[in-house]
Amino acid sequence: MTAHNTDTTMLVAFDGSPESRRALEYAAKLLKPKKVEILTAWEPLHRQAARAMTLTTLGADPEDPAQTGALETCRDGVALAESLGLQARAHLVESATAVWSAIVDAADELRPDVIVTGTRGISGWKSLWQSSTADSVLHHAAVPVFVVPPLADGEDGTDDNSGTGNNLGA
């Protein structure tokens, strides 16, 4: 069965990272939906700077480079989805609190059948300092979540079963 499931819509949390690209490619291959909602959550530059520098008086820039970069990333996600034969729509959402919350809120509004996300696979001490977006989405979403892990050390990302050498981790 290689036909697309026309009844299934997936929401892909896409940040342009190798992990989000890998998640989209795997989900397209395994879930075989026809429609995909590409979601890129972004945080305004003034909030990023305030958090990094603990300043709270920075004003919003009407031409925020973070929003411009997020829009480009989202467009790249749509292009990738379309190259995989999917009908894709772009969604750019501003993260008011946490990226995972923006993803869950968008899923509540868009009502997909599944949320797709990649993960960096951070563990140990480092995981104490960096929260996992995928883990938070998994625990707060009202729909199933398809989480794709990063490439394992030494894994080259080729799909030996396809015979094409298609790099699923690029």
Score class of each variant (00 low, 15 high):
113 D>E: 07
132 S>G: 07
2 T>E: 15
87 Q>G: 09
61 D>S: 13
116 V>P: 04
96 A>E: 09
51 R>W: 07
63 E>D: 10
150 P>N: 04
136 S>D: 11
59 G>F: 09
112 P>F: 10
12 V>C: 12
91 H>S: 14
106 A>L: 02
55 L>F: 01
170 A>C: 01
141 A>F: 07
46 H>L: 04
157 G>P: 00
50 A>L: 08
58 L>H: 06
9 T>E: 06
92 L>H: 13
95 S>D: 13
167 N>H: 09
56 T>H: 14
10 M>C: 12
65 P>D: 14
156 D>G: 01
97 T>I: 11
22 R>E: 03
53 M>Y: 13
125 W>Q: 02
128 L>M: 14
91 H>M: 02
122 I>Y: 03
144 P>R: 11
122 I>H: 03
38 I>N: 08
56 T>F: 15
40 T>M: 09
135 D>C: 03
116 V>M: 04
120 R>M: 03
22 R>C: 01
36 V>T: 12
159 D>P: 00
113 D>F: 02
80 L>D: 04
69 G>F: 05
102 A>G: 10
54 T>S: 13
133 T>W: 07
110 L>N: 12
124 G>F: 06
84 L>F: 12
140 H>D: 11
105 D>N: 10
144 P>T: 10
26 Y>S: 09
41 A>D: 11
162 S>I: 02
87 Q>N: 13
130 Q>G: 01
102 A>V: 14
31 L>D: 10
108 D>K: 08
94 E>Y: 04
154 G>F: 02
9 T>I: 04
9 T>R: 15
100 W>G: 03
88 A>E: 04
51 R>T: 01
19 E>Q: 15
52 A>M: 13
101 S>N: 02
82 E>M: 12
89 R>F: 02
36 V>L: 05
127 S>D: 01
78 V>Q: 14
39 L>I: 00
87 Q>P: 02
14 F>D: 08
114 V>D: 00
119 T>L: 00
47 R>E: 08
89 R>A: 01
41 A>F: 09
3 A>S: 08
75 R>W: 11
37 E>R: 04
24 L>E: 00
8 T>I: 08
94 E>P: 02
100 W>K: 06
90 A>T: 10
67 Q>K: 14
36 V>W: 00
127 S>F: 08
7 D>C: 06
139 H>A: 06
34 K>Y: 01
10 M>W: 12
64 D>E: 11
1 M>K: 14
167 N>E: 00
19 E>V: 00
142 A>T: 14
38 I>V: 15
83 S>V: 00
93 V>T: 12
47 R>F: 07
9 T>C: 13
138 L>G: 03
69 G>E: 13
78 V>T: 11
89 R>T: 15
25 E>A: 14
61 D>Y: 05
25 E>W: 01
72 E>I: 06
119 T>G: 03
14 F>E: 12
166 N>F: 04
136 S>L: 14
56 T>N: 09
167 N>W: 00
15 D>W: 06
25 E>S: 07
42 W>M: 05
47 R>C: 02
166 N>Q: 07
107 A>W: 00
130 Q>K: 03
